[in-house]
Design a protein around this nucleic acid. Sequence first.
DNA 1: GAGCTGTCGCTACGGGTCGTAGCGTAACGG
DNA 2: CCGTTACGCTACGACCCGTAGCGACAGCTC
Lengths: 224, 224
Amino acid sequence: MQSRTPAGRSGRPRSAAADTAILTATRAALVELGWSKLTLGDVAARAGVAKTTLHRRWAGKNELVLDAVAEPFDALRLPDRGTLAAGVEDVVLQPAAILDRPEARSGLMAAVAEATRDAALRERVRTSIVDRRKRLVVEGRARARARGERPVEFGPEEAARTADLIFDMVAGAVVHRSLVSAEPADAEWARSLTRVLLLGLAGAAAAGEREDRVPHANGGAGEA
Amino acid sequence: MQSRTPAGRSGRPRSAAADTAILTATRAALVELGWSKLTLGDVAARAGVAKTTLHRRWAGKNELVLDAVAEPFDALRLPDRGTLAAGVEDVVLQPAAILDRPEARSGLMAAVAEATRDAALRERVRTSIVDRRKRLVVEGRARARARGERPVEFGPEEAARTADLIFDMVAGAVVHRSLVSAEPADAEWARSLTRVLLLGLAGAAAAGEREDRVPHANGGAGEA
DNA sequence: GAGCTGTCGCTACGGGTCGTAGCGTAACGG
DNA sequence: CCGTTACGCTACGACCCGTAGCGACAGCTC
């Protein structure tokens, strides 16, 4: 988490209430001001704590904002809706709902931007957001397998590479849709994305099974 | 562009050399400092101009950085490599190459983050980056059609929606791969992405032609 | 209960950046 | 030659940062 409670150390323990107050205040400030105009002094005032308390727990603005916007990702759960397709749609829609919140929009992207120059922050993004989302994908695949649906499966190494590809496509598409294209990632859009994705993977798997001739994968009609 | 040359106004014209010097200095500063630590005073010093000159041409840090990192997107061209698949791979790889530059990594994402709270900046991102990339997609499709390959095509309205979906998937995947997953968007990865995408679109088109029964699109094997 | 330890709120400070104003100078057009 | 605009330079108030120092507080251990 954000502040390491130093295990069995003695002394006055850190106020857990202050933690939640600060993170809540940070989200509120993000909504009103955005990342660039957010100041630590302002957050401290909103949370009703001293500015120094902020610095005792977080190294800087980046870490604080990241923790504040990463919190909702903790609550991500995947309801079992029966089919693989429905599961994929959920994996698309749940983070899309989070990205609808204005504090997540500016906060997450700013954190990613800063992470390009800060390896520690990048690692933090990975553990607190990316891994939690990937867990959903793994969970959905396991369920589908138990259910009898056969998700695309290759060798163990190829499978990992494919999982990464899927994740980049899904997560990237959601982010790009809602932040860059500025259009809603709603249920219908999620359905279209899921369809293209699953059909493409099925096709790639079918092509992979007959190892020899790689089909050219054009539009589906005559080639030239 | 960034600074409107006021047409037929009188008086001393703005130095074009200063413009390029400033943008170059901005990119250099982005590489060394990243977005958050970049200061306008530092950029001015590197460019050899006065700080006031910066404020006369750009409203603030956001606009300046955006113009600086958007410039390379002007040069995007799409070589005709014969097949639709190759064209798609190029659409993937060209921006990936730009995102390899460290100044683009932090600058672009920061601009997008700020754009979530600034409509004018968002419009600027759209015209100077998104539209230029979309142009490549349209160009590639037109070539494929002229060549005899039939890219997926529905009604005109459905086609537009599909084009947006493709764009969000491709652009989003590239960004997510290189910035969040922090792994190279190289030729092999682009090939995998292209394959899944085109096969998925072909499958979706085939399913769309027989309007009635929507196939369930699971892994390809038996359903439950 | 006494003492230790670490947190908390508060205040104050130096250092840095921002954005603007004011001034004299430089370049171009009528 | 004169009006107009851009430029470089300096200076200024405002803001924010990050830290240090202080007294007070809350747990834990003995």
